[in-house]
């Protein structure tokens, strides 16, 4: 294991031992190994440096490396926990963990809040929601009249912004999501429950047997 691990560490900066990542997340050691197969494929798609850059992330999401999307950018920024402009394997596993079906709603609610708090002010502000709404309309090639956009924002903030100060804080967000649970659907990836089947090739590289026995 030692030789294998040092080789992996050299090729994949920031690579952490699967057993450690497993202990901090909802993933088993085998599932962390499976995620490493996915990580290797994404991180080697443009530059084979063992790290995922933004272009590689977009390529994996859209199968198109040139596609710019503010939501994908925001997700990338949240995955890039160390703010290095790249995602290492530890970042990747810890961020994906939030999307695991067994992770608490509390963690998912918090991640979604940070996702939409694009400027990192601690509030989801109306101008941020408007910006995201317009981006979504562009992405889906939908056209809405300005007054319809404003009406949607009015309605949303009437429902979510309990103290009507024009911004949504974390407690208002928790309350709003509890009344609109479908908003959290994007925060759970059923794939993560069955990842060793999705990426069976990990079995050939697995250290699980050595660690488990």
């Amino acid at each position: 294991m030692g030789r294998f691990q040092s080789k992996v560490t050299r090729q994949y900066p920031g690579h952490e031992v699967p057993i450690v990542l497993s202990s901090e997340t909802a993933f088993s050691v085998g599932e962390v190994e499976a995620l490493f197969e996915l990580f290797k494929s994404i991180s080697g798609s443009v530059i084979d440096d063992g790290l995922i850059n933004k272009e590689e992330f977009q390529l994996a999401l859209f199968k198109n490396r040139k596609k710019e999307n503010i939501f994908a950018n925001r997700i990338f920024d949240l995955f890039d926990a160390k703010k290095k402009g790249v995602i290492d394997f530890g970042d990747f596993v810890r961020a994906l963990n939030v999307f695991h079906p067994n992770v608490s709603q509390e963690d998912k609610i918090d991640f979604a809040f940070r996702l939409y708090d694009m400027d990192g002010t601690g509030f989801i502000e109306r101008n941020e929601v408007k910006q995201m709404l317009i981006a979504l309309l562009c992405e889906s090639e939908m056209k809405l009249a300005d007054e319809t956009i404003e009406a949607i924002l009015d309605k949303t903030f009437l429902d979510a912004d309990m103290n009507q100060d024009g911004k949504i804080d974390i407690s208002e967000w928790k309350n709003f999501v509890s009344r609109n649970p479908s908003l959290l659907k994007i925060m759970t990836l059923p794939y993560l429950r069955d990842i060793t089947t999705t990426f069976p090739s990990f079995i050939f590289h697995s250290e699980v047997d050595e660690i488990a026995t």
Partner: peptide, 26 residues
């Protein structure tokens, strides 16, 4: 068409950029 009574976050959450499931599609 999108009704004005729709919740902004419901709309936003339909973005392809937020659908991480596509990371797992080869």
């Amino acid at each position: 068409s999108v009704p004005a009574t729709m919740n902004a976050f419901e709309l936003i959450s339909t973005s392809q950029g937020l659908n991480l499931g596509s990371l797992f599609e080869k």
